[in-house]
Design a protein around this nucleic acid. Sequence first.
DNA 1: AGCACGATTAACT
DNA 2: GTTAATCGTGCTC
Length: 194
Amino acid sequence: MPTPLPPDFYARSTLTVARELLGARLVRMLDGVRLSGTITETEAYVGETDLACHARAGRTPRTQVMYGPPGRAYVYFTYGMHWMLNVVTEPENFPCAVLIRAVEVIEGQELVAARRPGVAKPQWTDGPAKLCVAFGITGDLNAVDLTRPVAGLWVEAGEPVPAENVTIGPRVGLYSVPEPWKGMPWRFLRRREK
DNA sequence: AGCACGATTAACT
DNA sequence: GTTAATCGTGCTC
């Protein structure tokens, strides 16, 4: 029996959720195969006042899932070719989310290898759009409930990452976002092991 | 008009 | 081996 992280996990401060998602396990049922990966990089996007967050535009068809209950998926399309996976955080009507930027594939390596032909393992899922390709995540999964194993996508508890292995820095890929939002240290990544 | 990107290329060391 | 620059693509507002 899968045991997804409960709504209470997501109903907290977005920064806390982003930090604690490091080490957690992203699980995807695809073609009858269980894929999973350890989350290694996240970014927090916090409300309408965060000018890097899509919710800066207010409640629109695209952003409305962020206004809904925590623990849902916010999947959106950008740059004409890329899907991105976020998890909705905080109580309803506070539009926030954590972008899942990278995972390390654990289960289902054969299927992922087949989905990422010609790509070496470390590059299978080391970017937010790459992991969506590897795990078969598209707009079909927007707004699904990640706290129950009903949609074939959820997050399980993993191995906690100790503070000394966490690197914190500014979010990336924000081209024209003004300060102070552009420089806010809201990116969390697990330091490379070895 | 403007993207919460990634691959390719071109320049370096 | 590295970093920097370019641009395709189509959805959102």
